[in-house]
Design a protein around this nucleic acid. Structure first.
Lengths: 142, 142
DNA sequence: GTGTTTGCAAAGTGTTTGCAATTTA
DNA sequence: TAAATTGCAAACACTTTGCAAACAC
């Protein structure tokens, strides 16, 4: 939080994407990128910010997440319908989706092969293949 | 629409699942199951019903879609985050998702193999593997 | 008749937007 | 100071809910 040394690398990273390194964006970037790979929702990140005494509005969190996504710093993940997840891992990978609690877990995409996909519909080209492995917690009672 | 011959097989199908074959449920079942495999949203189905002069409320459409899903007559598909799709194809299959217009296209699951999935997270077991092949319309301008 | 189902309108989520006030360069 | 960004509150889209009236058996 020292304003004299405000995470130079994050400042640079934001500048490179054409986003002004504002207090809010820096704070969110710090939460997002300074603790390994993670999955957040707008609300979870907003909660973290507030918990860390970072004053930022939910609207700004949404804006920032979308701007970061557009800049290639985040990847948007759709699994659950209800909420939108953002993933700080932008490399090729897929997801386990733990149905019981809506948690996401990455797994690397390098070793994964999907074979047997038919031709894409007329006039379309393949953008990406997403694999979601849905899992549920084993209950010994089952 | 002849009340004297109200689609006996649909009536039976509903009865088997423990759902009373009400006018609304029969009408929706007819729209859903009498014209091949399809993907609907609550709103699209509601629109169809109204267009076909079937008086049914949106709330009932939602209820019915969920009841049918629970009964195994439909499958819920998550791809787009904004809306929930229901698929009358309950067999093993995957989806093309046409990003430009949010349209879904099925492809059969039999020929598809996903290899290289690591072990599921601790204490969980695999429920299902969903493959979404995202495609976009080719523009000659691109 | 009795329990189920429906429809309405209201409430609930998660997300987006308009705009004045603030901040950045 | 000019342009970008923020925060608020209101608006949104989609979905769920509570409850009285209508319906199925």
């Amino acid at each position: 939080m020292n304003p004299d040394r405000p995470y130079a690398h994050l400042v640079t990273r934001l500048r490179e994407t054409g986003l002004r390194p504002t207090r809010q964006r820096l704070a969110l970037a710090k939460l997002l990128f300074e603790q390994g790979e993670r999955h957040v929702t707008a609300e979870s990140l907003h909660g973290e910010a507030l918990a860390g005494s970072i004053r930022v509005s939910l609207a700004t969190v949404y804006n920032t997440l979308h701007q970061f996504t557009q800049a290639g710093l985040l990847r948007q993940v759709v699994v659950d319908g209800a909420r939108t997840y953002f993933d700080t891992n932008t490399r090729l990978h897929h997801h386990f989706f733990i149905e019981d609690d809506g948690e996401l877990v990455d797994f690397p995409g390098e070793g994964v092969t999907v074979s047997g996909i038919p031709e894409t519909p007329d006039g379309t080209e393949q953008t990406r293949v997403d694999v979601v492995v849905r899992v549920s917690r084993q209950s010994s009672a089952n």
